[in-house]
Design a protein around this nucleic acid. Sequence first.
DNA 1: CTGTTAGCGCATTCAG
DNA 2: CTGAATGCGCTAACAG
Lengths: 330, 330
Amino acid sequence: MTIYDIAREAGVAASTVSRVINNKPGIKAETRKKVQDLLDKYNYTPDVAARGLVMQSTKMVGILIVDIRVTHHINSAFVIEQELTKRGYCSIIMSTGPEGENKSEYIRILEQRRVEGVILMGSMFATEQIKEAIQRHLSKVPVVIVNGYLDLPNVSGVLIDEDAGVGKCADLLISKGKKKLAFVLDQPSPANLRKQQGFCDAVLRHGASREDLLLYEAEESSVQGGYDVTVRILREHPDVQGIIYSIDLVAVGGIRAAHDLGVNVPEQLGIIGVDSSIYGEICMPKLTTLNNKLEEVSEIAATILREGLEGKVQNRKLMMFSEIIERESS
Amino acid sequence: MTIYDIAREAGVAASTVSRVINNKPGIKAETRKKVQDLLDKYNYTPDVAARGLVMQSTKMVGILIVDIRVTHHINSAFVIEQELTKRGYCSIIMSTGPEGENKSEYIRILEQRRVEGVILMGSMFATEQIKEAIQRHLSKVPVVIVNGYLDLPNVSGVLIDEDAGVGKCADLLISKGKKKLAFVLDQPSPANLRKQQGFCDAVLRHGASREDLLLYEAEESSVQGGYDVTVRILREHPDVQGIIYSIDLVAVGGIRAAHDLGVNVPEQLGIIGVDSSIYGEICMPKLTTLNNKLEEVSEIAATILREGLEGKVQNRKLMMFSEIIERESS
DNA sequence: CTGTTAGCGCATTCAG
DNA sequence: CTGAATGCGCTAACAG
């Protein structure tokens, strides 16, 4: 069913049907009704792609996420999707996987779809490779990176001071008398490395030497990964009194490991995660965590993208400040 | 940059460029190279919408989810998205919210986008209202409902025997000597009501009378909702020995409530959830849960959709069988 | 082997 | 107030 089909049956021209559909003025009420009735009768809906072709506007945006199953990323995507849907945009949400080449490939897919704006979810997108892909394929549309930044005229970034935040977490543990601390990375993303740096800075500031820096990496970003690495830490350094994990999911594995090993949390071992995720509320004891304000960050990202879609200035760089949520594990 | 721009610079016709792009045979190697070089030089990528217009194929599918933040739904969507992306399709993943009218509206949006297939995630889409919307707007494309079914020629459904599964959960608790059982619903979706029915059937089968049926509903589908309703159950019926929850997320709230009330799990109170979600592995004790095979179900749904996209038979109805994963809470 | 032509479904001139 | 003509970017049928 096209406007031509409707036009023929109504005995008018296609342009008249188009005008009715788009509520343009200057149509006799009688004609309008006749056409509208037909439109209703056939449940006609315009082909937005065809419309987009002539309007030069697809009303589509892309949201790239390394893995949509990661809770905090999909939560952020939700916020952005809702905002954009409200404004008539359609979101293409895709899982790119961790490999850089794939991520570039997805950027190409978005270009092919002629999206009008892009959200890149997570610091994993703040790489040189992506920067090149954006220059090559998406230099004309606003791009907003959540928790990352690339210096390109059409790219904006909303950052989070997770490094300072993790530093505050270390301060907190130390203030509770925990002398020897360790840091666990789930994966070496730019954001996680920043957190690790924040940890190192804080520990060194408290008078530790470089050799005292206990830095670990989990085998996988999961509960099990956190469990395993914690068992290892506690075996290699039984005197560790506090562990900070790059994300909650891994931290809750640590809590369970401590439990199984008969180590009391928080008395013998303080544990802190990052994300203020639901996982931290489920485990026992409840997890102290760094709230990195992902929802607020997402709202800001959505706003910046919206402004970009409206043609306002791009290349903005904002910073959100994280806060510790103290619960039972510290 | 369009094929005409390339064609002009290469001194050939647009159709030749098109042939090069699509790897059609019958082009002199020399010409092909000349065009390809230009294509590369300008990083040309075809506009898939324009192509779709003439090919009558958008290569897009829609995945409708009530709320993409719900872990098991987005996990399912992930499986389907991966499969479809591999085949060159682009997924429009949208959160519809729970209201029926909105859901119909989203179906209209998908029609406007001329998607070639649709996944409806969750039993919440198996309603008369959606059925009408599908008839009106999506009667020409394959639709697959995950954990639900509607009797329409273009609709398929993959069901899960969660009712029988929950019945087996009740059997398990009873076999452990738990006489008095309660069931908690997080929301009255068709699937959840089926679970409740399975619970009732099982309990009655074991000789209980209708008055013994303890059916509760959580205020909200969350940890807190599970916590609150469990406190209420334990207050109103201190002799309850087992509770089955419609989903894990709510069950872990129950585990915490029991802990705070000084009720031992599983000795005094057996607790079972549904979903085999990560939540159940995080809480303490670990949650016994009904594995409703969401991943397998999603894979099947993806397969059916793929076959539908290839023009194969639709209106299929399959059933997956759930299995109890026994952990520590039962 | 390649160019010309037509048309996908729509919005938008410009006439009338 | 309405219709005819044009073009968005692309592919395909048909000539040559």
